[in-house]
């Protein structure tokens, strides 16, 4: 049953990788933004950034080889999405599941570390609570993906070592 959580982890990863903004009530400016962090009018996603509703920086309009970093990070999150769904399939071999959980944990920890460093650099240390206005939903979703994979790995290891 715990392996089925991989579907949730996969869907979340694909949402972060592909979707920008989902409007809930446009008249009230109520929307779900999958940004990792935001400063003033700029929102930074896993695939690039938007400023005042217009795409500003992304992997496509950056020059080679700078764009490779952006594409690499984007591919990492796509990989988490695919591998999370693969781990949930009942026919996947047990040793493959173990490896994929470990890789997912490694990648999501790596992404969280990078973004945490960026957020801490941007943070105004005199106003520590501004941290919560900088961090976006995407950051929390990567954190949830990490937690899901750790829990899944723990229960998977426990159930298969008995």
């Amino acid at each position: 049953m715990i392996r089925k959580l991989g579907y949730l982890s996969g869907v979340l990863a694909f949402l972060i990788a592909l979707v920008g903004i989902i409007p809930i009530a446009p008249a009230e400016n109520l929307k779900i933004s999958f940004s990792i962090f935001s400063i003033d009018t700029s929102e930074y996603f896993i695939w690039g950034s938007i400023q005042n509703g217009i795409s500003s920086l992304n992997s496509i309009n950056l020059n080679f080889p700078e764009n490779l970093i952006g594409i690499f990070i984007w591919i990492l999150i796509i990989f988490i999405g695919i591998s999370s769904i693969i781990t949930s399939l009942s026919k996947t071999k047990l040793n493959h599941v173990f490896r994929l959980y470990s890789i997912n944990i490694l990648i999501s920890s790596f992404l969280l570390t990078i973004y945490s460093i960026i957020i801490l650099v941007l943070l105004d240390w005199n106003d520590f609570l501004s941290l919560f206005s900088i961090i976006g939903l995407g950051y929390y979703l990567i954190l949830i993906i990490l937690i899901i994979n750790i829990i899944s790995l723990y229960f998977f290891y426990k159930n298969n070592s008995l």
Binding site: A17, L18, V19, G20, I21, I22, P23, P26, K31, F45, W47, G48, I50, G53, I54, S55, N58, S59, I60, W74
Partner: peptide, 24 residues
């Protein structure tokens, strides 16, 4: 490949499905 899909254009205030990035 559409990346950064949105369902509402904030500039024109109209419902539309589009994306911020189009990976050719």
């Amino acid at each position: 490949i559409p990346i950064g899909i949105y369902f509402w254009n904030e500039l024109t205030s109209t419902a539309e499905i589009n994306s911020f990035i189009k990976l050719p």
